[in-house]
Design a protein around this nucleic acid. Structure first.
Lengths: 139, 139
DNA sequence: TATTAATCCTATCAATTTAATAGGAATTAC
DNA sequence: GTAATTCCTATTAAATTGATAGGATTAATA
């Protein structure tokens, strides 16, 4: 299941990307429009900012803005920040590889191969999708 | 993340498929060989039996066996039984469709389209993979 | 400079899900 | 009748997720 964190994050990014103006957008505005608990959204946007996808401006008239054009924000990056590794098992993760604790030999593991295929096919989708694609409502 | 339930289930199925004999395999044998907690595995194999993928024989010399040839056991079916819906959000699930509780209009939802693509690409993998593929260790 | 409005940060909590365990009932082979 | 097995239900412990709380920090502006 996709976590609410990721779902909310994607919706918020889409919301920001769809704005005409370049002015920072307040959390409260996004929360109200997208019906997301504000405090929860705050923490999500903070994560996105720390990862470099969003920038922020503090104080009055502050808020969040995109650091790049929507066309240059790939889903691979967004999903990794919000949802974590794309692979379903650590032993096939490209960016967060770890030996599975319950698996003596991953080369003999029947699950391993299958999960590599799933990872690759999912990666293909995320690599070919940018925030601009999400924002395009005529889809 | 892939649940342990699914991982254990796939390993157990592979174990059974790889046996030469058609005799039922005891839970204890699989548990020991694959290093899976026996009681946990018991409940997993029970689920697989109830779903029709495995058959069982009770009593002495009892155990579990495949109801079909490995080549005819598709990952779509196995994954749905063990892991649940393949879609990451209920609103794009083919077999378990539900409206997302936090989404007023899924046609305007930017996440929806992305999740359809992910679903389709994952489905493609699972539809093209059978238990026979998992069992083939020369892969 | 004081006020207001915003992000930033840390801690906590409640609910859910997952992983595992326990104990025994039912069934079957021998 | 005994031993070995699946079957069933209930319980528990740990981890994760979703959400909340409270206040520190920063910046605009009157």
């Amino acid at each position: 299941m996709l976590s609410k964190k990721t779902k909310y994050g994607l919706k918020a990014l889409t919301f920001i990307a769809t704005r005409e103006s370049d002015l920072p957008v307040q959390v409260s505005v996004i929360a109200k429009s997208e019906q997301i608990p504000q405090k929860f959204l705050e923490s999500i946007l903070l994560t996105l900012r720390k990862s470099g996808i969003l920038g922020s401006k503090k104080g009055k008239h502050g808020g969040y803005y995109l650091r790049m054009e929507p066309l240059d924000i790939k889903m691979t990056d967004v999903m990794r920040v919000l949802e974590g590794p794309i692979a379903m098992v650590p032993c096939v993760s490209l960016n967060y590889y770890e030996k599975c604790d319950d698996c003596p030999d991953e080369h003999k593991c029947s699950v391993h191969k299958l999960m590599i295929e799933v990872r690759d096919s999912t990666l293909k989708v995320f690599r070919n999708t940018t925030l601009a694609d999400l924002s395009n409502t005529n889809g």
